[in-house]
């Protein structure tokens, strides 16, 4: 039951990738190779899973990941002004990481906080009812 199996085998791949992501802020080539060997899978197969999910990254990321929701309920509540303020505050564009490695900046699809739109996530924390004025203060907490 190990290769296809429920415990310890392939069924653990996503869990293991999620653990690597949260430990090292990305999934390195070494991690992919090690997982492929230990689960008896091809490197391509592990990479295929690692690159499928938007919360997993095969490139190094910053210590804190900002994800601003760009789906309609947030856009209706001026999410663009939040995107602009974050861009000004940390000086990078979506898809980039600050040179000091403090922040990675992404736009994301609906995070299920539409009742608090506009909303964003920083790491696992959800921040809602945002205004451009609140941005600096929210980001201050993340070193």
């Amino acid at each position: 039951m190990n290769k296809t199996g429920r415990n310890g085998g392939r069924g653990e791949l996503l869990v293991l990738l999620e653990a690597a992501q949260s430990k090292s802020a990305h999934i390195s080539r070494d991690t992919i190779t090690e997982l492929a060997e230990s689960l008896d899978l091809s490197i391509g197969e592990v990479y295929g899973v690692a690159s499928f999910y938007s919360f997993l990254s095969t490139k190094p990321q910053g210590r804190n990941i900002i994800r601003i929701c760009k789906s309609l309920p947030c856009l209706l509540k001026h999410a663009q002004t939040i995107i602009d303020s974050v861009r000004q505050e940390i000086g990078i564009l979506p898809g980039e990481t600050t040179p000091d490695g403090r922040f990675s900046f992404e736009l994301t699809n609906c995070i299920g906080a539409c009742d608090k739109a506009p909303a964003m996530m920083v790491n696992s924390d959800v921040h809602g009812d945002l205004t451009p004025k609140k941005i600096a203060k929210v980001l201050q907490a993340y070193k």
Binding site: N109, C110, G112, A113, C114, D115
Partner: peptide
């Protein structure tokens, strides 16, 4: 895994 836009 509710991911539908506008669902919470």
């Amino acid at each position: 895994d509710e991911g539908e836009v506008g669902t919470f």
